[in-house]
Computed example of a mutant assay.
Amino acid sequence: MSWMAWTLPTAIFVILIVSCIAVLTVMDVRSPPVTRKGFLPIPTDRGDRFYIAMLGLLAINLTWWGVTDASPLIGLTLSLIWLGVTMRWG
């Protein structure tokens, strides 16, 4: 990994995102996605909700880091709550 000068947290983040996409691919092959309408204003399937949740994770974390000096773990916790809510009820 030295050829990209990645840090360990960056590598873990990328590995987790790729793993999530692989899991979504396997889920789509085994069980085709069903489009439904939740609290989001558009009909979405699993992949759409995952993409929207990832954008939300980015926005929440960047906002948390930019606005407060509190622990980044609080921002991460809020992000994971957003991910769960979006994937379940989005």
Rank of each mutant, 00 (worst) to 15 (best):
L24V: 00
G38I: 11
L83C: 10
G56E: 00
I52H: 02
L55I: 15
D48R: 09
I52F: 13
S71K: 04
V18G: 00
V34M: 07
I42Q: 06
W64N: 06
V34W: 04
I21L: 15
G38K: 12
A11C: 00
W3R: 07
M1N: 06
T86C: 13
I21F: 00
A5L: 11
P9H: 14
L40W: 11
I81T: 12
V85I: 15
T7I: 04
I81Q: 03
R49K: 15
V14P: 07
W82H: 15
R88W: 13
L76W: 11
S71I: 05
I15E: 04
C20K: 04
T77V: 10
G47L: 09
L62W: 10
L83Y: 11
T77I: 05
I12K: 06
P72R: 10
G90T: 07
G90P: 08
T63A: 14
V18H: 10
A59K: 03
L24I: 04
L83N: 03
I52Y: 15
A11M: 13
T10R: 06
V23M: 09
W65K: 05
S79Y: 11
W65F: 14
T68W: 15
Y51N: 14
R49F: 02
P32A: 12
M1K: 00
A5W: 11
D69R: 13
T86Y: 13
Y51A: 01
F50V: 07
M1E: 05
L55P: 00
A59Y: 12
V23Q: 06
V26K: 07
L55T: 10
R30T: 01
N61M: 13
G56C: 03
V85W: 03
G90R: 05
I12M: 12
L62G: 03
Y51V: 14
V14A: 11
L83P: 04
W65Q: 02
